[in-house]
Design a protein around this nucleic acid. Sequence first.
RNA 1: GCGGGGGUGGCCGAGCCAGGUCAAAGGCGGCGGACUCAAGAUCCGCUCCCUUAGGGGUGCGUGGGUUCAAAUCCCACCCCCCGCACCA
Length: 945
Amino acid sequence: MREIQRKWRKRWEESGIFEADPDPSREKFYITVAYPYPNSPQHIGHGRTYGLADAYARFKRMRGYNVLLPMAFHYTGTPILAMARRLKEGDQELRELFVRIYKIPEEKVDELTDPLKLARYFHEEIKEGMKLMGYSIDWRREFTTIDPAYNRFITWQFYKLKERGYLTKGRHPVGWCPRCDNAVGQHDTKGDVEPEIGETTAIKFRLADEDLILPVITFRPETVFGVTNLWIRPFYRYKVIRVGEERWVVSELAVTKLKFQGFKVEVVDEIEGRELVGKRAINPVTGDRVIVLPAEFVDPDYGTGVVMSVPAHAPYDYLALVDLKRDPSRLEDFGLGRGVVEELEPISIIKVEGFSDYPAKDVVEKLGVKDQNDPLAEKATEEVYSKEYHSGVMKENTGQFAEMPVSKAKEEVRKYIIEKGLGFNFYEIVNSPVYCRCGAKIVVKIVEDQWFIDYSNPEWKRMAHEALNNMRIIPEELREEFREAIDWMKEKACARKSGLGTRLPFDPNWIIESLSDSTIYMAYYTLSKFINQGKVKPEQFTNEVFDYIFLGKGDPDKLPVEREVLEELRREFLYWYPLDSRHSGRDLIWNHLTFFIFNHVAIFPRELWPRQIVVNGSVTMEGKKMSKSFGNIIPIRVAVDQFGADPIRLSVLGSAEIQSDADFSVQVASNTLSKLMKMYELSLKYGKSRGEVSPKRFWDRWILSRVRGHVEAVTRAMEECRTRESINHALYMFINDLDEYMSAVEADPAVMWKVLEVWARLIAPFAPFTAEEVWEKIGGEGFVSVAKWPEPEELPSYPDDEVAYEVVEGVIEDVRNVLSTGVKGSKLYVYVASPWKYELFNKVEEVKEKVGLDPRKLIPEVMKEDMFRSRGKEVANIVRQYSTGGWPWLKSADLEQRYLEELRTYMEKKLGMEVKIEKEDSATYDPKGRAKRALPGRPAIYIEA
RNA sequence: GCGGGGGUGGCCGAGCCAGGUCAAAGGCGGCGGACUCAAGAUCCGCUCCCUUAGGGGUGCGUGGGUUCAAAUCCCACCCCCCGCACCA
């Protein structure tokens, strides 16, 4: 197998059969797959999308299209940087992964601390894997997204977007590491945690007797009406800061947060939390005086380090209050009497169906939460929140918000607070603490001047919908999801300060991020060939040149590219565009694929909008999700070495239809291999037996007819990328039939040759190596990869023979059924039904066109004829049986009898009994009177010892 | 919550759009047999319950409905998975 793979890889490469150039005489088909991100090797999971695209490309190619399938590499972004850095920092876990799972030599790993080397390394690794898998890619068009020419292309794209008013600038919150002074994404955090940013409302509580403000933050501004007290950490030094004319008390980290969120703050003093304990603060919304109480659970790193307490509706606050009531002695340390606590009672402000006035209390009791440190408290909080949010209504003690549903009040109260200057917007890391790899806690920074692509633009959305409506989506079920995705799109931050990629031309501090520089690159493949061939220099790609190539604008004589080359570029682009099929994984619907639609409609004219999107599910490994932690990721190179490219291709594409997850299993792969080997061996045996196919025997006709059926089925299925069904027919069912043929009868060499000749072509999109080898062995011309796709018409059709086979199989099954009851016998009598029953069946077939299969209508209709009416009851019974849907049957008793005779020895062999064919009407032997049970397609049987 | 997709036999999974040959493809697992000294691989048969001459019952998340006929169509309910971004 390895030898075969090597051989054909080499021949394909040398012959250049997958290199596609414009050819106006042929219809083109342009397919692209999402290019890989080279920060890890390719594994079996990638074989899904690439394998499908390749099989589809090969199929289309064989159907006569001039097919282009190019490939490039996506270097843009930060993960490559982050990974190289981790390696440099000596991350053992990562090193282990590289060495043990990715099988990278130890000494090589050290070199990969350089991000570019890392990218290049995996780039080559992935490319090698693609070649090993036999993908029919035109490598002349390869590029990376940091190539100067590509950068120019992206630059042009962004000029276009700006020109059309699709770029905007604004404020935007991001996760930020104060120590590294940089934006932090998931891959920059310890444990790869995505920092989730939430918008909270900060509410300013002013001390009653002092000019100090305690700001508190909350996700539930509407609960401000239920505040009973504030919590402060007693033994912690807070900062006193000046903000405008006001003096605020906040924790140290909060000072940083406020700065990053655009506040001008100045630290003027410090104050110990306990100094504030016992003081009264004014609830700015209600005007209530609430007491400041000490609580160790207050985390100074969360929010402002001061929190408001709403015991009626927040389980944590309720629990804290209960604890304090249970043991008020702690308060004495702060010079507070017990009375202070005793007078604190939860204030109910929300009514919820099925709960008392104090939902927090209800849920805490229901779940049996012990105290504030009980992990169940989190769950309780979620439950209360969700219940109140969705079905809660504000009570009459909430002033203008009374009777408002909580979900609405939340927004209204928040607006009110901000408009009246009683508080402000504050962003917080929801899942804090999240740590940067450097160890610092991540905060939220409001980035000013952030660039956005404005996908919220209604006119743009309308065009995107239009494009979608004219596009074929495979599988069709996902169209709805695309619709949603388009509607849901809003401004997308499209640039960041670090990472690899292209700089924003009009604001070079920014680098275009990776999802935004990969939306229309399919157009660029039509040009990259010329760059790689040296026909054009990157510097020659000016905006005006692109305008001409892609949009046909401008004066071609005034451009820095020779007229001839320029026209060639334009022709090349116009030949391949529009894109015929875009392939990618399911996870990219909500970003890449939708951006792909948006950007195409933004930049290109209607006639160049993409025609089709194909989306596939992922791959599991022996039924389990692939993940680093399971250690079940097999790099492609390792897998190919172990199982062979064809078996991997077949088992991944054959195990699931497009929308669901495929599974890779070692067992299936090795079964597949042995099936392929079997066909290969047959090609050795029958490779030279080409001859005229003149099927005289039943089995010859049958196998040819069946093969024809498989050709039809695979062709139909592949047009819709249904690889599972295709492979089922092209491999499993095909071989089953062939086995049946060969075991039933001595194979006819000419028939075998023909069957193999068709098979090699049928399997070529899925198992190209084996197909080429078989093709060669049978003396096929050229490469099977570019041979003509088989047409059903190449094979004869024998529907009667196929029906006869099913009838006989039915008989065999019935006999086995009877034998399983303990009956023993060595002779089988098979009785063919009387001719009048065939006439009855014919009649029913005819009548059912008019009245359907309803027996109540069928029977009277049939009874109109005397010959049936005279057999009244029997006919009624038969019709009733048949009206359950019917079964395959041959058109006449003679025909059925002839077939049964022809297949008599087959039945004898299968059943190990002597078989006699009799007629119902003239049975020579029928001791038990079975013959009368015979029906067309269901001969009666009798077994005798 | 909103949006999308689903619930099928021991498990995975087809079938559902176009209702009838659906006790329901295929695979895995299990059982039995052939081959083998043996194991593995391979091949053959069985694998819901009852019955034992090709029969019957139950059955495709739950409950209703439409129909001569429902895994498939309609309604309601329950449950599960995925997405909700600035990140590849």
